[in-house]
Simulated assay, not measured.
Amino acid sequence: MTSLLVDANYLVVKVGSSLVTNNGEGLDQKAIAAWADQIARIVKQGKHVVLVSSGAVAEGMQRLGWKKRPTLVNELQAAAAVGQMGLVQMYESCFSLHGMHTAQILLTHEDLADRKRYLNARSTLRTLLDLGVIPIINENDTVATEEIRFGDNDTLGSLVANLIDADALVILTDQPGLYSADPRKHADARFIQQGMAGDIELEKMAGGAGSAVGTGGMLTKILAAKRAARSGAHTVIASGREHDVLIRLANGELIGTHLRAGQIKTLAKKQWLADHLRLSGRVVLDDGAVKALTQDGKSLLPIGVVAIEGSFERGEVVACVDAQGHEIARGLVNYTSLEASRILGQPSSEIERILGYIDEAELIHRDNLILI
């Protein structure tokens, strides 16, 4: 088997903080120059690359003379604001040596949760790629609060992969890839070279549900691969310490862990729904409604809902959960939480009598719903 990057035309490459900041000591110009060189070379092979790069806070701390990472949100945001200047400046200077331009894109979850802003971001990124520009993406830490944060750049990378319909997501870290257990604690840990994105056993190995074993951040990478697979993007988790790792992967060498996407590309609107990290509420379904959604591909009707949780408005994204609380789908709801509470368990023919009007016969139409 050869690398999943061989036939990939659109790539999202995520580079971890330790790879660009001398393990947190400030930006490593030599390392960043090496990334720029590798990306420039694979772009000249005909590939389009978006780079998701950490490092702003570490650079900001160095510029401000801070020896210890702050804990206050406003100080972290200040460090990020200062550090972004250095991060983008260095990438721009390194890529200019190859005759290439870069563009800075800072995102928050709200940018992708709002349909209009999502489409604007998508259009801008695709245009930049068509122009041969390298977008440098990071979370907008300067304005992001806990409520609108992605939480980590692995998640951000997967969302960007969905956003641009990438063929592959490359997560470069300081580890060789995924192991069956933490190799620092278990000498018999087995290296996982190939797998399927979304495999629940991988989540368990990485410290997810049903496992007490963690591998130092690998879970976020496994979940990122699962999310990227929704739009048909494969994921490679590899060591950024490997010499010319991007070049070798693009040329077919099997480095790191390769997780294949098992599904075809999701329709753009449903992909956008799946990318919502924070939802406005939940609707609890009975067994019949669960079957209608998961097996029959039907819309969600009020009669199949047994409970409403949270407060939401018409047109917001809500989760659909079964009686045990497991999320099975999410979608754009046609009624507010107050209205939904009044019509739950009722046939659609009763909506107008109960509410005095009817917008839609469905609580969530199947065209506005995606299975999780």
Rank of each mutant, 00 (worst) to 15 (best):
V6L: 15
D7F: 06
N9R: 15
Y10Q: 08
V12K: 02
V13L: 08
A31R: 14
D37H: 14
Q38F: 07
I42L: 09
K44R: 10
K47S: 04
H48I: 00
V49Q: 03
G60P: 08
M61L: 14
R63S: 13
R63W: 07
L64G: 11
L64K: 07
G65H: 03
W66H: 05
P70E: 03
L72V: 03
V73K: 09
L76W: 05
A79Y: 07
A79T: 08
V82D: 11
Q84A: 08
G86F: 05
V88W: 12
Q89C: 05
E92M: 01
S93I: 05
S96I: 01
S96K: 15
M100L: 15
T102E: 01
I105F: 01
E110W: 02
L112N: 02
A113L: 00
R115Y: 12
S123Y: 04
T124W: 05
T124S: 15
L125D: 08
L128R: 06
L128I: 04
L129K: 05
L131K: 13
I136F: 04
I137C: 03
I137L: 07
D141N: 09
D141L: 05
D141E: 14
E146A: 15
E146C: 02
I148K: 04
I148P: 01
F150S: 10
T155L: 02
L156I: 04
S158T: 03
S158I: 03
V160L: 05
N162T: 10
L169I: 10
T173Q: 03
P176Y: 08
G177D: 02
K185D: 09
H186T: 10
A187I: 02
I192S: 05
Q194E: 14
Q194K: 13
M196L: 13
G208H: 03
G210Y: 03
G217M: 04
M218P: 10
K221P: 11
A225D: 13
K226A: 12
K226I: 00
A228R: 02
A228H: 07
A233N: 11
A238K: 07
A238Y: 12
A238V: 14
S239D: 15
S239R: 05
R241F: 13
H243Q: 15
D244F: 04
R248G: 07
N251G: 13
G256R: 02
G256P: 12
R260M: 09
A261W: 07
G262M: 07
Q263V: 13
T266V: 04
T266F: 00
K269I: 07
W272M: 06
L273C: 08
A274L: 11
D275R: 01
L277I: 13
D286H: 03
V290W: 00
Q295A: 13
Q295D: 12
D296I: 00
G304R: 09
E309H: 10
E313Y: 01
E316S: 15
A319Q: 13
D322V: 10
Q324E: 14
H326A: 07
A329D: 11
G331N: 09
L332D: 00
L332I: 14
Y335H: 11
S337P: 11
S337W: 06
L338T: 15
E339G: 05
S341A: 15
R342C: 08
G345M: 01
Q346Y: 00
S349H: 13
S349R: 14
E350T: 13
E352H: 14
R353Y: 06
L355S: 05
Y357V: 06
Y357A: 09
D359R: 14
R366H: 09
D367I: 01
L371Y: 01
I372L: 10
